[in-house]
Amino acid sequence: MTSPSLLAATANVLRRDLTVAWRRSADVLTPLVFFAIVTSLFPLGVGPEPSLLRTLAPGVLWVAALLSVMLALNRMFANDYADGTLELLALSPHPLSLLVLSKVAAHWVLTGLPLVLISPLLAVQLNLPSEAMGALLLSLLLGTPVLSLIGAVGAALTLGLRGGGVLVSLLVLPLYTPVLIFGAGSVAQAAAGAEIEAYISLLAAFLALTLTFAPWAAAAALRVSLD
């Protein structure tokens, strides 16, 4: 018997999740379209006054990104749970937390990363000054993985429960607030021409913290859900 390699196993989980998502592309597009539509609704709702939109832009973009990521959370483990693939993950001879980490990475590549990439386009629509574009991209780039990581714990805890979708929002949204505050804060600061280093450092710290603890917590929650 060949001894299984951990790196190969995590790469294998990542590749498989991306392949499955590629073949079920509607799942990937839904959060992205949701993000675009929600941000586009604001100019229609509050009126096209440029200065008002400029004030709202950081918050609107960040809240919309946060809700889009949450929209896709159910998908992270639900399909694998339903078809039994999750049992195979739990019974594989590798630390479940690292396999969970590759699932979260796949989830981020499919939801967070596309959001980051189209955010400048939607920011223009909301009249965000060009000085703040860098802050927007950087804050989302650091913040959306945190959203996916925290979301993984929520998704794992509510796995197999009826009405899990609503429950996961209730669990996860309070934990999202620090990310929202510092994410949107950094963009607003940049728009005002102020220094954003402190905000970005805090977001990076959140990322380091959740990277350390979230996969482990999610793996423990998955084992409980599978019991």
Partner: peptide, 19 residues
């Protein structure tokens, strides 16, 4: 997984459990 072919399903299982 329904989206994957039988061969891909086996490859995924093999990758998890050992090469």
């Amino acid at each position: 997984q329904g989206e994957l072919t039988p061969a891909e399903n086996l490859r995924a299982a093999a990758g998890l459990a050992g090469a």
